[in-house]
């Protein structure tokens, strides 16, 4: 199992146009189940369609567009590559070693 140093950020700080990988969702069973159903499972690629830094955002996940409140998006932690991480406020970036995720 390959290991790599990765940058983990909450989804709400990912800029529009970036594609990231879902790491984990922190939250209660209700929101977890609702998001998992829509395709937010570990390893799933998410593409940020719209994020103006305020108000709800739009994410493409498994060929569907989902609108998320910022509060909900904060519960979703995603892996970003170094180039993207540099564009994000360092306060939100957590660096960690993660094992390779199972295929989406």
């Amino acid at each position: 199992m390959a290991e790599a140093r990765k940058a983990i950020v909450p989804l709400d700080v990912v800029p529009a146009g970036e594609t990231v990988l879902l790491q984990e969702i922190v939250g209660g069973r209700g929101i977890l189940s609702q998001l998992a159903t829509l395709g937010f499972t570990p390893g799933a690629p998410l593409t940020m369609i719209q994020n103006f830094g305020h108000g709800p955002l739009i994410v493409q996940v498994r060929d569907a567009r989902i609108a998320l409140g910022r509060g909900e998006a904060r519960h979703i932690l995603v892996q970003v590559d170094e180039k993207t991480a540099e564009r994000i406020d360092p306060r939100f970036v957590r660096r960690t070693f993660v094992s390779r995720l199972p295929d989406a």
């Binding site: 709800p56 989902i66 909900e72």
Partner: peptide
Amino acid sequence: GERAAFIMEL
């Protein structure tokens, strides 16, 4: 109780 989460398909 918890406010309904805003998760909606477009």
